[in-house]
Structures are given as structure tokens and as C-alpha cells.
Design a protein around this nucleic acid. Structure first.
Length: 567
DNA sequence: GCCGTTTTCGGCCCGACTGTTTTCAGTCG
């Protein structure tokens, strides 16, 4: 896995250098290197050992030397440590505020000596910022709002990122001799979109001894058979060691929210079952629990998948046998909304399609950017034609996966799509998304999206809320009105599976299902290595109670063409 | 800082939008 700590250091170096007035292209080199390490699977210690890091494009002498230093000094880079003594590291956090870039931070640092989010907040409250050259009342107000959002996101992690770390940890724990069971619990098991820590429940015969041994392995203390280490990036981990006899009771107990558990307890009490710390008691006798299913059996209700254990409505549904069979990875047949080297993707259409085939998909819908997205190499009308010729040729090659002609069309500020009708007509699928003009008023933004939805050429609304988890709040919009409109017009809304987006949010997807709206689980992938993000979207869809019948890309290729392309 | 040369310097992603200022710099996707 990518060394996230190093990636963060490289990004911070770029920010600090830019603030201190360094050449913009020098700072870009650090951003570029961080980007490459995020995207490519590079084994840095191996490259350093072989002396081949400098052969990788983007890594020259200077970066090779600094990265070598980082690995030689146990994750510390002297250059970065020195830089931090000259320019405060806390400035980097301010650049995370939407609308505030490095130049603005430099200005507030030089003019007002602001070095942290807290100092900036004070400057806003005291009305100092708006009276400073280069800033005005609008920026000050926006800062104040965004600071609240940023402070709330401190100490939180995107679920999929936590999940990636957790998988490694779980594999390690399950390999230990004393481990009998180990699983995630708490909100990470319910797949809430962000979490504050990784929580793992582990069963071992001798829990005290196992806890001591694990504490030694993780170089930390243990108290009450609980170990609290950290990941290499500092993400908190809690490992709770228990006995095999109590394991499945605790697995259930530590997963659901209090609202959910209270509804479960009420049900159990109705059956003369009491719930105590370690298990379930019926008429003075402890009920043996060999799996989580035994608990639901005792309560006399259907099994509730962990993702749904958010509130009492899941318990009510289970009591009526109304928990549906949730969509699963293998239900997906079509890989929708992907990019290629034609716009800002890193792989060719053929590479993306073949990788999708490898992941078990029957068809691949290429949706490169449209012409308004100039930064992303959006396709001109001529390029659209040439791309379609390439797709026709690829389909003639019989790759074993069908390639479908799509586009991700920008929704322009007036709500129209990005090509004239005769060009729009040439696509099989059109995903319409917003990539600019985020700060419209709620009514204006809602009207803009509704106009796009009503466009006869629009099939799917892409990343509807525009949120970036822990980075940018959704734009102002009336999501219910948008879902209502999409349902009325038979349009589809995407669940964008990018771990930063998970957009449509699951809470709104529940409403969409109530309105019988169809959804699509789309990876919005820009390279073969992130096509599997689509399975993160499956988790989000499961959390919204969705089944394969709710998802258009669970249709096989023939049905997809019949029901979606040719409708 | 990196890269690729007409090979040791010159160029490096672009255009819309926003807010501030009053013609444009900064931010963003």
C-alpha cells in the first residue's frame, strides 16, 4: 500500500515551499511525486535498495535523496523537519479550506501573522480578515463556515481508507496462534462514511495472556484486555480481546448503534430474555450463542446485515420479514462512468475495459469528460467522433467485454448539457455532472440540476451532492426535489463509489428507493487500479437497503441495452 | 525539481468562476 505518511510530507513540502515564495514549478514537482505515489503501486524501499527510484519518471536526484533519507531515518525527512522550523506546518491545514489556496494563506501569514485554523477563526470573528487587503466580507464569512466543517472533520477518516488499513491488521491478527475469531465492530463495520478509529473484536482462549502478548507486539499497554495502538499514519486502533464464549454476543453488541440495540433489547425482553454484559439469559439460563444468527433467532426475527444496524427501523423491518437481499459485488455486470487517456484518465479504453472484464464485468461504459472540462482534457466534437470510431474497432476485436459509448457531460451553469443535440444523440449513455459553479444559491442550483434531468438526452445524474468527504461539504441543493424529479422523468442517479465521494449519500439513497428511483453504482475511475472502487459503492448501496433490482448496472448487457440505452 | 533536448537550460495543463478591486489574481476541477 502507498506510504500515506510520505505522501502527506511531500504535499506539505509543496505548500510550505510555495508559501515561502519558491518557484511554482519546483513545488509542482513535489505535488506530482505525491500524486504518482498515490496512483502507482511503487515499492519504494525496493527501488531505493536497487538504486532505481531515479529511473521512475517524476523522481530525479533531489527527490530520490530525500525519500532515501526518509526511509533511512524511520519516517523522518531532515529537509522537511528544517522547512517546518522556518514556516509553520499548521499553515498547511488552512489550505484545506475551500476557496483558500496557498497564495491566500501566504497573504494572511504575512499580513496578519496567522499560522493556524484557530488564529484564522479569531481573525474572522474579530472582523480583522475582511479589513485586510485581498480579503473581503464574503471570504471572511465563507471561511467561518468552512472552519466549522474542517474542525468537525479533524480526527476522522474516510471509511474505505480505514477499511484498507483494517484489512491488513485483521489478517495479521487472524494469523496469530491464539486467535480464534477476529472481526471489525463499531461504525466501521456498519460502513458509515467516516470513522474516528478502527475497532476490532478478537476472541482468544486466554484473553488476558493474549492481550499481554498483543500489547508487546504493538509496543503499547493494555488495560481490561483492550489494546490501543495506532496505524503508521496515526489512525487510532482499539483491539478488544474477549473469550470465544462471549465473542458473538459482543460482536453484535459492539456493532449496532444504541438506538438499534435498544430496539433489539425490547424485542428480546418481550421473549423473556434479558441482556446482560456477557450474553442473553432466558429464565435464568444463559443462551449459547455460536454465531450472530443465534441472537436474531432468539429474538425471533430475520438476520439484519451489519450495514443496516443504524436505527430501530431495521429491527422493525426484520420483525416483519422485510429485510431485502442486499446487492452484492457479484451482482454488478456493467462498469459505468469511467475515464480514459482520451480525457484525464491514465489508461486507454482498451486497458480499462480489459481490467473490468478481469473483475467479472460484461460491459464497460466509457464516460470521458465533455468539452467544457478543459482542465481535464474534455473531448471536442471531433474527438468524440474519433473516439467512437476507436470504440467500434475495439468492439470488433471481440475483447470479451462490450464497450458502450458514454460521456460525462458537464451541466453548464444554465443547466444545459455541453454539446449540441446532434452530438448528444451519438452517445449511448450520458452522465450529467456539475464540475463548476458550486456556490450557487440553493434554489438556483436545484433548478439547474432539474433542468439537466429534464433534458431528454440525460440518463444519469453524476455525483449529485458534490461533496468530498472530510474535505468539502455538498453544494446547496434540495436533494429531495431532485430525486422526485428524477423519479418522475425515469432518470437514474449515480452512487459515485470514489471513497472521497460516496455520493449520492446513503441517507438520500434510502429516500430514492422509496420513490422507486433506479440507481447506478459507478466507480468514476481514472485508472485501472481504481476500477475496484466500484465495490466501495456496493457497500454504500447496501447501507441504503438497495437490492440488485434497484441498480441498473446489475442488468446484463442485453437488458441494459434494451432498458437503458434504447429506451 | 523534473525532463528532454536543436543536451546543462527553458518549459512545465487550461479556462471558468469568484471576489476583490475597479482590471485582475487566486482557486478549482
Amino acid at each position: 500500500m502507498a506510504d500515506k505518511k510520505l505522501i502527506k510530507i511531500l504535499k506539505n513540502i509543496a505548500i510550505l515551499l510555495e508559501i515561502s515564495g519558491e518557484n511554482h514549478f519546483k513545488t509542482r514537482a513535489y505535488i506530482n511525486a505525491a500524486q504518482i505515489l498515490t496512483e502507482e503501486n511503487i515499492n519504494l524501499p525496493e527501488e531505493i535498495k536497487k538504486g532505481t527510484l531515479g529511473n521512475i519518471p517524476g523522481f530525479g536526484k533531489a527527490l530520490t535523496s530525500k525519500i532515501t533519507d526518509y526511509f533511512a531515518n524511520n519516517g523522518t525527512m531532515e529537509y522537511y523537519e528544517n522547512l517546518k522550523t522556518k514556516t509553520p506546518e499548521s499553515l498547511t491545514e488552512i489550505t484545506k479550506l475551500p476557496g483558500i489556496g496557498v497564495k491566500k494563506v501566504k497573504q494572511m501569514y504575512e499580513q496578519l501573522h496567522i499560522t493556524s485554523i484557530e488564529e484564522l477563526e479569531n481573525a474572522c470573528i474579530n472582523d480583522t480578515l475582511s479589513n485586510t487587503k485581498g480579503f473581503g466580507a464574503a471570504t471572511q464569512e465563507k471561511c467561518l463556515n468552512n472552519i466549522q466543517h474542517l474542525k468537525a472533520s479533524r480526527g476522522r477518516y474516510r471509511s474505505q481508507e480505514a477499511m484498507d488499513e483494517a484489512e491488513i491488521l485483521l489478517n495479521f491478527l487472524r494469523d496469530q496462534d491464539n486467535t480464534i475469531h477476529a472481526d471489525l465492530v463499531s461504525d466501521i463495520r456498519r460502513f458509515t462514511e467516516t470513522v474516528s478509529e478502527i475497532v476490532i473484536l478478537l476472541a482468544a482462549k486466554d484473553k488476558e495472556q493474549t492481550a499481554s502478548e498483543l500489547a508487546i507486539k504493538f509496543e503499547t499497554d493494555h488495560k481490561d484486555s483492550i489494546i490501543r495502538p495506532q496505524t503508521s499514519q496515526g489512525m487510532p486502533i482499539t483491539i478488544i480481546v474477549t473469550t470465544p464464549a462471549e465473542y458473538f454476543f459482543k460482536l453484535h453488541h459492539l456493532t449496532g448503534t444504541s438506538d438499534y440495540l435498544s430496539a433489539m433489547n425490547d424485542l428480546l425482553n418481550d421473549k423473556q430474555i434479558t441482556v446482560n454484559e456477557g450474553g442473553l439469559i432466558k429464565l435464568g439460563t444463559k443462551i449459547e450463542i455460536k454465531s450472530e444468527h443465534d441472537i436474531f433467532h432468539a429474538a425471533g426475527i430475520q438476520f439484519i446485515p451489519p450495514e443496516l444496524r443504524e436505527n430501530k427501523s431495521a429491527v422493525e423491518a426484520a420483525a416483519k420479514n422485510n429485510i431485502p437481499e442486499l446487492v452484492k459485488d457479484s451482482d454488478l455486470k456493467g462498469m459505468l462512468h469511467c475515464h480514459s487517456t482520451w480525457s484525464d484518465g491514465r489508461n486507454s479504453i482498451k486497458e480499462m475495459a480489459l481490467k473490468s472484464k478481469e473483475l467479472g464485468f460484461e460491459y464497460f461504459v466509457i464516460c470521458d469528460h465533455s468539452r467544457a472540462a478543459a482542465y481535464a482534457g474534455g473531448l471536442t466534437i471531433d474527438q468524440v467522433k474519433t473516439q467512437h470510431e476507436e470504440i467500434d474497432k475495439l468492439n470488433e476485436e471481440n475483447l470479451g467485454i462490450q464497450i458502450v459509448k458514454g460521456i460525462e457531460s458537464d451541466i453548464l451553469s444554465d443547466g444545459s448539457l455541453d454539446y449540441p443535440d446532434e452530438v448528444l444523440e451519438s452517445f449511448d449513455i450520458i452522465v450529467a455532472s456539475i464540475h463548476s459553479g458550486f456556490t450557487m444559491k440553493k434554489e438556483e442550483m436545484t433548478a439547474r440540476i432539474i433542468k439537466a434531468l429534464k433534458n431528454p438526452y440525460t440518463d444519469i445524474l453524476g455525483h449529485p451532492s458534490g461533496r468530498l468527504l472530510l474535505a468539502r461539504p455538498a453544494y446547496e441543493l434540495d436533494i429531495k426535489a431532485i430525486i422526485d424529479c428524477a423519479a418522475d422523468y425515469g432518470k437514474i442517479i449515480e452512487i459515485n463509489s470514489n471513497p472521497y465521494r460516496l455520493d449520492l449519500p446513503w441517507q438520500d439513497a434510502i429516500y430514492a428507493k422509496q420513490k422507486s428511483l433506479k440507481l447506478a453504482i459507478n466507480p468514476d475511475s481514472h485508472r485501472t487500479s481504481t476500477l475496484s472502487d466500484v465495490f466501495t459503492g456496493v457497500k454504500a448501496a447496501r447501507k441504503a437497503w438497495l437490492t440488485k433490482d434497484d441498480i441498473i448496472n446489475c442488468l446484463d448487457h442485453r437488458q441494459f441495452v434494451k432498458e437503458i440505452v434504447n429506451r
